[in-house]
């Protein structure tokens, strides 16, 4: 290809210049649609968000920009419980998702054979039904006298006061269920990519099944674990549907607070400030995590 262009050089230098200039701009043209889209619908809202978070005033007096940093300090102080709770719940959810998804995707990637794609599709089937509807279904199932606990209680197998709904457990279980595919897919991709002959090679080199996993499969799947972590942890922290539908007053997460502040209290600056805090907190946590887990050296130490 390069020689082809060079041959053209001597023949028609002018044309070659145009051609080369054109070629250099091609990548930009290809990324332009997405770039424009993100500019309008991501960057611009971000700017507006940060701008709003520094405004003061109320709905009636009108909002004005006043470098109102107190929105941040007030927000953090007022809602630090919910912030912490969100991170703890999301952390538990992420660990639960990884524990559930890893063995499952491992099995699909290594033993699924020609059923691989069909099984993978099964993981995605729940997505065909709306997220909210699925979560509301859980409400029926886990209700104090609902499908599961009702009969168990009338049979006397569970005490009358037993409840799952409106407990942190219900929220964790709901989010885990809803985000499991986000964990499973990157894990599957990472595990699927591992050359199966590496496992044979490990066994040939005196590694038992467990050691072959521990020294070869696990370290090579770490990038997938990392991606799965981010794709689960970050959105799970901001989730508010599960806490709203399955939780109670004691399980409100920061997502619920932001939603209420926006829609009910109509305190835009505070809600915006809370959103920015959440976003920055996620960025910081993710980069700490990347430092600890995401490097190649870690893969190496895990293997030796």
């Amino acid at each position: 290809m390069a020689t082809g262009t060079e041959e053209r050089v001597s023949a028609a230098p002018a044309r070659r210049g145009a051609y080369a200039r054109h070629r250099r701009t091609v990548p930009y043209w290809l990324t332009a649609p997405a770039g424009l889209y993100l500019l309008v619908f991501l960057v611009l809202p971000m700017v507006i968000l940060v701008y709003t978070s520094l405004q003061s005033g109320g709905l009636f007096g009108g909002l004005r920009f006043s470098w109102a940093w107190e929105n941040y300090t007030d927000g953090i102080l007022q809602y630090k419980t919910q912030f912490l709770r969100s991170i703890v719940i999301s952390g538990i959810v992420t660990v639960a998702c990884l524990l559930l998804a890893y063995p499952m995707t491992y099995w699909i990637a290594f033993y699924g054979q020609r059923w691989k794609s069909s099984i993978l599709l099964l993981i995605l089937v729940p997505f065909f039904v709306s997220f909210v509807i699925r979560t509301v279904q859980w409400r029926f199932m886990l209700g104090d006298n609902g499908l599961i606990f009702g009969p168990l209680k009338s049979l006397g197998l569970l005490p009358q006061g037993f409840r799952v709904l409106a407990t942190p457990f219900a929220v964790v279980a709901g989010i885990t269920y809803n985000y499991l595919p986000f964990t499973a897919l990157p894990l599957y991709v990472a595990l699927e990519r591992i050359d199966k002959s590496l496992v044979e090679a490990a066994k040939d080199l005196y590694a038992s099944k467990w050691q072959a996993f521990r020294r070869v499969v696990w370290p090579l799947s770490l990038p997938g674990v990392f991606a799965a972590f981010l794709l689960t942890f970050v959105p799970a922290t901001g989730d508010y549907v599960n806490a709203a539908v399955l939780g109670g007053p004691g399980t409100r997460m920061i997502g619920n607070i932001i939603q209420e502040t926006f829609l009910h209290s109509v305190n835009y600056p505070l809600a915006a400030a809370l959103s920015v805090v959440l976003m920055v907190a996620m960025l910081i946590l993710a980069s700490i995590y990347a430092r600890v887990l995401g490097t190649e050296d870690e893969t190496l130490t895990a293997a030796i």
Binding site: S197, E200, D204, L205, Y206, R215, E296, L300, I304
Partner: peptide
């Protein structure tokens, strides 16, 4: 892993996450 036999695989099957030294030391470490 219980046989006194080792294999050189067609695709080599070298461990991509390990350097040459660790690849070679793998069996001895196990």
């Amino acid at each position: 892993y219980k046989r006194d036999v080792n294999t050189v695989f067609q695709s080599y099957a070298l461990f991509p996450h390990l350097n040459v030294y660790e690849n070679i030391a793998f069996g001895l470490r196990r």
